[in-house]
Design a protein around this nucleic acid. Sequence first.
RNA 1: CGGGGCGUAGCGUAGCUUGGUAGCGCGUCUGAAUGGGGUUCAGAAGGUCGUGAGUUCAAAUCUCACCGCCCCGACCA
Length: 577
Amino acid sequence: MRWSQTLIPTLKETPAEAEIISHKLLLRAGLIRKLTGGLYTFLPLGLRALRKVEQIVREEMNRAGALEVLMPALQPPDIWQQSGRYEAAQDVLFKVRDRAKKEWVLGPTHEEVITSLVAGEISSYRQMPKNFYQIQTKFRDEIRPRFGLMRAKEFIMKDAYSFDATDELAQDSYRKMYDAYARIFQRCGLKTIAVEADTGVMGGKFSHEFMVPAETGENEVVFCEGCGYAANVEKATSGAAKAAATAGEQPKPEKFATPGVVTIEALTRPPHNVSGDKQIKTLVYIADSKVVLVLLRGDDQLNEAKLAGALGTATFRPAEPAEIFNALGAHPGSLGAVDVKAHPVYADERLRDASGMTTGANQDGFHLRNVVISRDIVVNHWAELRVVQAGEPCSKCGQPLKVQRAIEVGHVFKLGTKYSIALKALFLDESGKQQPAIMGCYGIGVTRTLQAVIEQSHDDNGIVWPLSVAPYAVCITPLNVAADSEVMKRAESIYKELTQRGVDVILDDRNERPGVKFKDSELVGFPIRVGVGEKSLAKGEIEIKPRAGALIPVKVEEAVERIIALMNAGTQAKGQG
RNA sequence: CGGGGCGUAGCGUAGCUUGGUAGCGCGUCUGAAUGGGGUUCAGAAGGUCGUGAGUUCAAAUCUCACCGCCCCGACCA
C-alpha cells in the first residue's frame, strides 16, 4: 500500500472526547472515528489491525477443534422468552420493530440461537462433543458506553458454545478453550492473567476471566505471587483473621448515647474511640421485595456479587431511608441487628465469633456496646460477603494478596444445562436415555482486545504494535519521493520485493518533510521502519528502525533479508506456533 | 437512571463574569523558499456559536426547556 492512496488521518492534537491513552491513540493514529457515543467506524488501518486479531482468534479456535458458523444478529424474541432472559436481559436488549409492528431483538449474545440450532440438529451422544463459534457484531444497550472501543453499544465478539454428553467431557471442552484463550492473547502480544470469576446467580462450577492488567481497567483482580491464586474481586476470598472466640462470661449489651454519630468513622474518634474492627456495620437491602439485614465488620466493605450469591437472587437493592426507618425504627447510622427477628440477617463470616462489638441500637443517637454476635444476634445465614483488600493473607499460602486493576478481554464459562433444558437441546445417551446437553460458553471481546493491546503497548510517541497485530509490519520511509531520485527508486524496489515476499508493507510516498513522516510512523506504531535517504545511501546503506529498538544501518543489498530476519525473530519471540 | 462537567470552523481552543463587527493555533487550498525529526513566509477558503423559545434596540454572552457528548456509580466481551 502507498500511504498517499489510503486514508490515515493522524492528529497532532487529541480530541477532547478521549480520556485514556489507548482511546487517544486510536483516534490520533487514524484507526477509528466516532459516529456517535459508543459507535465507531474502523478506518483502513484500524480494520487491518482488527482483522489480524480476528485471524489469530480464528486460527486458534480452529486448532482447538471449534467449528465456525455465523448466526443472525437479528433474533426473534420468543427464544429469549423461552430462556427467561427476555426479562433478565431487558436492560441491554436492543429491540426493533418491523413494518407489521412485530418486535425483534438485536443479539447481545447467542446462547438462545445456538441452543435452538443444536436442539434441531443434534440428537445423539455420538454427535458430541461439538463446539461452535462465530466472530460477529454484538449489540448491547450499554448503560454507559465509554473509552472508545472498550465498552461500546456495538462491538465485535468471538463467541463459542460447547455441547457435551457428560460433565467430564464438558470439562475437557472448557479446558481446551481455556488453553486456546491463553494462546490467543499471547499471540496478540498481550500479558493476561486468568482469574477465577464470579458465576453469579446462574450457578455453574467454573468461570475464568482473562484480564489485561491496566490502571484504566474497569475490573479489579486479586492475586497471590506466592501460589498463583488469582480471582476477580467479586469472587476473591482471603485468609484474613477472624475474631477469636472469647471464653467466659461476657458483659451484657449496654446502650450509650452517641448524638450526631452516624458513620463508622465518627465512632472511631473521641470520645467513643471504637475502632472499625470492633464495630458491626448493618446494611439494609430489599431483596425480592423483602427487607434483609447484612452485617459486616465496621472496616469491611460489602461485595454485592457475593451478596447476590448468598441471597440466591440478583434482584436486590439498598433500601431507601424511609424503608429502613419503617423496618427498624431508626435511620442509617444508628442501625443494628440485636434482637431483630422480623427480618432475615445475613452476616459475614468474619464476624462469626466476634464479641465486645459495638453496633447501632435502632434508636437514633444511641449505640450498643458489649455485643456478642453468637449470643445477641440471630444470624440466619453466614456467608463470605466482604471485599478482599490488598495485603490480606492468601487463603492458600498466607502471602499478602495484591490487587490490580484490569481489562477483561475474555471469559470462559461452564454453563451447565440451563439453556439446553429451556430450549430443549436434548440427546440420547448410550443407554437410550434422554438428557440435556451440558454447555459451556466462551467469549472474547475482539474490538476490546485490540484496544487493550494499545493500552498495554505504547510509548510517548505512539502505539508500539506487536508484529502479530500491526496493520502493516513494515513502513518504508523514503526521504525524497521524486520518482527519478535514487532514494525513491531504492525505496520502490525494497517495497516491491517485500510485497512479493508476502510482507505487509506500506510505502510512505507522501511529499512530506522527514520529521512529519517519522512522527507519523511512530504514532501509528509500525514494528519496523525502513529509512531510505541520500546520506545513508551514499554509504551504500539503508536504515532499519525497529519501533521499540535502536536504529540498524544495513547494506542496501542485504536490506530485504535483514528485514525478514528481524520479523521472524520477532514472531518467535512472541511464541507463535 | 442518579451525581458532576462540557457543547464556538475538520481538530484543539479564546471570547461568556460586565450583551454591541466571532478571534487564535493545528489541519486544508494557492504560491514561494526549505528538505534527515511535526520547517518558514505570503495569501485564501471554511462558522446555523448544539436546538428551540424568552428577555433586550441588540444575545456566542442573560433566562428557561430540550438535544448531544464526556467523567463518576449499577451492567458486561
